[in-house]
């Protein structure tokens, strides 16, 4: 007999812990579909978190915080785009470097903005929205229908991103760039413009993950608060087979593992909770090996496009 309260708790935890991973993974999918690795998700989450905290701290409005976070994400995405597209730095190196850079920069700036006091400054965040009637349902009600606004934003954004990427003309252009930039270029698709667009949007989505951490979870900026979520998102992209919906499902699965792990630490200390921390990584690894990466990864991901090069 499964405990219904426990199930509800885990479901709510899944939604809460899976949302940031889902945002970042969605960003990663868009970049990789355009032929660019975004290993910098981790740093961009921090950039978004800092932007959100600073915006909300300065104005007291969570919505302005959200806007500031997105702007920070756009800038950090464009920076990575400049490195990958214009300078043609190895995209993996560029992303790792961006992570290092943003980890330091956000720590430095946060101490400038919030002062050195421990715990930083509490900022105004979003409160939960109870959807009438649905939130009264047992088990799923409190867990899925009384979440914060960013969870509902995720659902909206996910559907929009899926439609744009898979069903619209521009989305097709972007996917063409990711598969074969030369052919796309010859067909008149503005390759570099599409890639800059993709990497900027990717940064903004990653930043939304950070915004969620600050404005919906802890209401304060902490150094290194991304805590590997950007890397888990990279795994979710693989497990989700480079599809927006797939990546979000994978991200929610990772959120589920995390929620179970938290519960286990309190309820049954004799089961090693680390098992559930390892599970997401192991699942992605197995997916990568068994299903093979070549079959569904965009063909030209990671290869800088050079017009003058045959």
């Amino acid at each position: 007999m499964i405990d219904l309260v426990l199930l509800g708790d885990v479901l709510a935890g899944t939604a809460r812990l899976g949302t940031p991973i889902a945002f970042a993974a969605l960003g990663g999918v868009i970049a990789e579909r355009g032929g660019l690795y975004n290993i910098g998700l981790e740093g961009q989450i921090l950039a978004g978190a800092l932007g959100a905290a600073a915006g909300s701290f300065a104005t007291g409005s969570a919505v302005i915080g959200l806007g500031c976070g997105i702007i920070c994400g756009l800038i950090s995405g464009l920076l990575l785009g400049y490195m990958s597209i214009r300078l043609r730095i190895n995209q993996l190196v560029g992303g790792i470097a961006l992570n290092l850079l943003l980890a330091g920069l956000t720590a430095f700036l946060s101490r400038q903005i919030f002062g050195a006091q421990a715990g930083g400054a509490r900022v105004n965040g979003f409160s939960q929205i109870n959807i009438p009637f649905l939130s009264d349902l047992p088990v799923v009600g409190p867990s899925l229908f009384s979440q914060d606004p960013l969870f509902y934003l995720l659902i909206g954004v996910a559907i929009a991103a899926w439609f744009w990427l898979m069903k619209s003309h521009k989305g097709l252009d972007l996917r063409a760039v990711g598969e074969n930039p030369k052919a796309a270029d010859l067909a008149g698709v503005p390759v570099f413009r599409m890639q800059y667009l993709a990497i900027a949007v990717s940064g903004a989505f990653a930043a939304l993950a950070g915004v969620h951490l600050v404005l919906s979870q802890v209401y304060v900026f902490a150094e290194g608060m991304s805590a590997g979520k950007g890397f888990i998102a990279l795994a979710a992209i693989i497990l989700g087979r480079w599809s927006p919906i797939g990546a979000i499902c994978a991200a929610l699965f990772f959120g589920f593992c995390d929620a179970v792990q938290f519960k286990l630490q309190f309820t049954s200390p004799d089961i090693p909770y680390q098992l559930f921390l390892i599970l997401p990584y192991l699942a992605s690894l197995i997916a990568l090996v068994v299903l093979g990466a070549k079959a569904s990864a965009p063909a030209s991901v990671g290869l800088p496009y050079d017009r003058e090069h045959r």
């Binding site: 490195m83 730095i89 190196v93 560029g94 992570n99 290092l100 850079l101 330091g104 920069l105």
Partner: peptide
């Protein structure tokens, strides 16, 4: 930390 990150970016470039 900022300097370290910049070192990688700039040396890679």
């Amino acid at each position: 930390e900022v300097v370290e990150g910049l070192v990688v970016v700039l040396v890679a470039a």
